[in-house]
């Protein structure tokens, strides 16, 4: 399991306006494209110096492809990254703060200690 790679996906998509829209509209396709072309890029290095070993496991890939932020929380993805990206994608569909409150409600079953987010 790679919390790091989940976070890397959330981080690199969140900072790119086009990718935010692409992930909103086509989550499964975006995750597949990202894993095959972006997951191993060392940020700030050209493609010839990419890593060779990073991949999602099936559950991680499915959680991202399903926009399943509850599962991402349970897996220990960084909650700030998940929240920020999902607000960017879905806040627009709700009344003010409506999405954030629903997000909290969907996590209501979680109690302390929360899943470890250390990478």
């Amino acid at each position: 399991m790679s919390k790091y790679l989940l976070n890397k996906f959330l981080f690199t998509v969140d900072r790119d306006p086009e990718l935010v829209e692409r992930y909103r509209e086509d989550p499964r396709g975006t995750v597949e494209w990202w894993e095959s072309t972006r997951a191993n890029l060392v940020l700030n290095c050209h493609g010839g110096e990419a890593s060779t070993w990073l991949r999602f496991d099936d559950a991680e890939r499915e959680a991202l492809a399903a926009h399943d932020y509850v599962r991402l929380f349970e897996m220990g993805a960084h909650p700030f990254l998940t929240l920020t990206l999902f607000i960017a994608m879905f806040e627009r569909d709700y009344e003010p703060l409506g999405f954030q409150k629903e997000y909290a409600r969907k996590l209501a079953h979680m109690s302390l200690p929360y899943p470890d987010i250390a990478t």
Partner: peptide, 9 residues
Amino acid sequence: ELGGPRQFG
């Protein structure tokens, strides 16, 4: 709390 059940209370 950010991204957890107690956020935005």
